[in-house]
């Protein structure tokens, strides 16, 4: 490298301070540094100053733990009010809609008397194994019902356990307040206000009977203890709830089956006005799906139970669909 075109005063010489080093002196210096580190790590006090470069920084994990930042997020949980036991979730489906890996599955609660939807969830299943902890659900929730938990020790040998149902998702508000106090105090007022409004629209125990909601599910231990994360996983996890609405992208086969089941149910109930609509809707689809010969030979009447056990599921579904459609036409 030639720098002769520069004036001497323009040359900035970096002070390396090792121009006088003989070979080996640099190594001796390095050994000294490493030995000093060794000494400080072995005899020095544990160092928690992250800006420092010497000392013992290790945290002996299972025994010692670092405090989590409030905004740390691992897996979503659902909140319920300590005082009333009412869940904050209104099953508005915002989280289900925004979830990128689509692991949230909600069924809306219905008033048993009127059959009308109630602002509460009947079933809530979250697949922890596929959840990517993005926190979108917590961000989008207008009722502050779904929040991100700090518990990260979720490893299990039982895979189905990771389909977490409502019982195991629920945590009291007081628990969330302990892990994220300022974040909760920011939203507390409006969340509680919205909850009071929703409680008015919830008849009976709907919205706070989460312990009994799922058949065979153990009553939630979380209701009693704030450390709900420790709640035992009661038995095998509940199978995923059926898809409530017929999607546009469902296969024809599936659509046919679903329609058949609905129609059969409607027929059993004697064809109430409320149920006529889906059946009528189903008719054209079923007709399109059903093979012509099968439709021709199908018995016009007869109980659903009479359909032979050895028929293929496919066929049976089609048949049922046709029968139901016909019954609906006759106005049974």
């Amino acid at each position: 490298m030639t720098l002769s075109h520069l004036a001497t005063e323009d040359v900035f010489v970096v002070e390396r301070n090792d121009a006088d080093f003989r070979a080996g002196q640099g190594m001796t210096k390095g050994l000294g540094i490493v030995f000093r580190k060794f000494r400080k790590a072995l005899f020095g006090k544990p160092n928690s100053d992250r800006a420092d470069t010497e000392g013992q920084f290790n945290v002996q994990y299972p025994e010692e733990r670092l405090a989590m930042p409030e905004a740390y997020r691992n897996m979503p949980i659902l909140l319920y009010d300590d005082a009333t036991g009412h869940e904050l979730c209104t099953s508005c489906f915002q989280c289900e809609r925004i979830c990128p890996p689509q692991v949230i599955h909600i069924t809306q609660a219905k008033d048993p008397a009127t059959g009308k939807p109630v602002p509460a969830a009947a079933k809530f299943v979250l697949e922890y194994d596929t959840c990517m902890s993005c926190g979108y659900c917590a961000e989008v929730c207008p009722f502050d019902a779904i929040k991100m938990d700090h518990d990260f020790e979720l490893s299990t040998a039982n895979h189905p356990e990771l389909d977490v149902d409502y019982n195991r998702l629920l945590r009291p508000v007081s628990y969330y307040e302990t892990i994220a106090p300022t974040m909760w105090s920011d939203v507390k007022e409006q969340a509680m206000k919205k909850l009071q409004n929703n409680i008015k629209r919830r008849p009976g125990d709907i919205g706070r009977d989460h312990g009994q909601k799922i058949k065979g599910g153990a009553p939630v231990a979380a209701a009693a203890t704030p450390a709900a994360g420790a709640a035992p996983a009661a038995g095998a996890a509940k199978p995923r709830g059926p898809v409530a609405a017929i999607g546009k992208n469902m296969s024809e086969d599936k659509t046919a089956k679903l329609l058949a089941i609905r129609a059969a149910n409607a027929a059993k109930r004697g064809g109430g006005a409320a149920d006529a609509a889906p059946v009528a809707q189903a008719a054209p689809v079923a007709e399109a799906v059903a093979a012509a010969p099968a439709a021709a030979s199908a018995a016009p009447t007869g109980p659903v139970a009479a359909i032979g056990q050895n028929m293929s599921e496919d066929k049976r579904a089609k048949l049922e669909a046709i029968r139901a459609a016909k019954r609906a036409e006759r106005g049974e």
Binding site: L3, V11, A19, F21, R22, A23
Partner: peptide
Amino acid sequence: VALIMRLTNRNVQKHLYTTDEELALGLS
């Protein structure tokens, strides 16, 4: 030891970087 280290050192310096004197003189 001093002699051999000096010889080794000269080689090291020549290969690693130009010395201040050489820079000031406008040499290589």
